[in-house]
């Protein structure tokens, strides 16, 4: 599988990353180098091998249904680059 300029543009869009037009081609080259190397995984027979979902042999922790958090609106807003009256603000989103 080979990655071209358009593919880089498409995945950059999916990742919401502004990649300058002149960087698309070189980036495609870099990614291809990496994907070509990764292709060696194709050598391994993985039929019937389960995909790993967790390296630790442990049961998922369950929390009690208690209200223990929140009430932090001020602290939540201290790092906000855009905010008004405890709301985060962004350029208007048109549905």
């Amino acid at each position: 599988m080979s990655v071209d300029k358009d593919t880089v543009r498409r995945i950059a869009k999916l990742a919401r990353l502004a990649v300058p037009e002149e960087r698309l081609e070189p980036m495609a080259g870099e990614l291809n180098g990496i994907f070509k190397w990764v292709e060696m995984l194709g050598e391994v027979k993985v039929d019937g091998v389960p995909a790993l979902t967790s390296v630790v042999a442990q049961k998922l922790k369950w929390r009690k249904d208690e209200v223990t958090d929140g009430g932090n609106a001020d602290a939540l807003m201290t790092n906000a680059p855009g905010g008004e009256d405890h709301f985060f603000t962004v350029p208007k989103v048109v549905e």
Binding site: A15, R16, L17, A18, L76, N79, A80, P81, G82, F88, V90, P91, K92, V93
Partner: peptide, 21 residues
């Protein structure tokens, strides 16, 4: 949106995301 770097004068939300990142 909630913290960290935000690009100056974004045109719209997509522009805000793409340029900030």
């Amino acid at each position: 949106v909630r913290f960290g770097h935000r690009a100056a004068s974004p045109r719209d939300i997509t522009d805000l995301y793409e340029r900030s990142r």
